[in-house]
Design a protein around this nucleic acid. Structure first.
Lengths: 193, 193
DNA sequence: GTCTATAGAAGGATAGAC
DNA sequence: GTCTATCCTTCTATAGAC
């Protein structure tokens, strides 16, 4: 069995994804992680806020690694973006519309209520934008265009997650994915790649 | 002073927008609405869930009316969309990145945890998509293209709200707004309007 | 360092006085 | 129908036994 600390982090990430930050209780976390209550404050002296910050950064890193994996397996930038949206739609359906963005719910909850956690979500989002833009530059885009394409793709993805989860259909991800693919290929054409 | 019931609805809508559903307490609501605690259960016998459902539908209706107002004041469909994104960015900055979508936070919180409220958010989102698509049809788009353009615009808007609130910049709304305007005009060109 | 017990505040909900 | 007092649960956090 994984170390207690890791089990707590994994369980918390899962609960945050489905129930959000305020909707997840510490007692619920230790119960599902099969850990004694005291373990939380032993491993995370800063309490729920420290645990939350670590989970946000960790989930953000892991989700970005998934993005890199899919992009590396794809033939090119354009098809990689299409694969990512398609994979997101499949995951969403397979998990009964539960597993979308690991931190979006928490990000909205803390945006105006908890400054340290808001900063954690900002760091994650900024790293995603920078990482996706880097891939765009490698594919031939100018840095400026690569950044706006990255922002656009991520807006389409996050927005589609909201509609898909609420409406329980994958329509929005299909539309957003098609738009993302089209935008990327147009941008590559415009920057002469 | 407005009737107690309306004050409760207004206050709850405001608190949901900033703190979300689980993050908003009934005691907090009556305190800010200057109402006695019993008023909640007098006007909303179904408790927090009934109140939440009414607030979601009401906020959704009001936000759509804002959309209609801006569209009616604009010269055409394309510039109306641009105005809406520009207005959203101004509001966001003016409210210290607090006032974005009135129901997105709640929608993500309840998507996998409260079926009646999930349905309320689904009804609102579906009405937004249908309403925006109707405007697209009136502007000359085919029904199919109008719907996908509507979904695309809304994904861009909701996604941009997440990034803007977390990063405390209006970059994402600017990028998303430009993309939305471009997509709408391209669609109108393709459908020969 | 693992784990239990409990404190103290806040959560939703109810009963009933006026 | 306005308003208060209170119930029970759950929350985060701490103290301290082992």
């Amino acid at each position: 069995m994984a170390p207690t600390r890791d089990r707590i982090l994994d369980t918390t990430a899962e609960l945050f994804r489905h129930h959000g930050y305020t909707g997840t209780g510490l007692k619920q976390i230790v119960a599902e992680a099969s850990a004694p209550f005291g373990s939380i404050y032993h491993h995370f002296p800063g309490g729920k806020e420290q645990l939350g910050g670590e989970v946000i950064r960790r989930s953000g890193r892991m989700y970005y690694e998934l993005f890199e994996l899919i992009m590396d397996q794809a033939d090119d930038f354009v098809s990689g973006v299409g694969d990512f949206f398609a994979g997101a739609a499949m995951t969403l359906e397979a998990t009964d519309y539960a597993d979308a963005c690991p931190i979006a719910t928490v990000a909205l909850e803390v945006a105006s209520t908890n400054e340290p956690l808001r900063e954690a979500t900002a760091e994650v989002f900024e790293s995603w934008i920078a990482g996706a833009a880097e891939r765009g530059v490698a594919a031939g885009l100018s840095p400026e265009r690569a950044r706006s394409v990255a922002v656009e793709i991520l807006c389409l993805l996050e927005g589609a997650f909201i509609f898909c989860r609420a409406l329980r259909t994958t329509e929005a991800l299909a539309v957003a994915g098609a738009r993302a693919v089209e935008s990327v290929s147009e941008a590559l054409g415009a920057d002469g790649a």
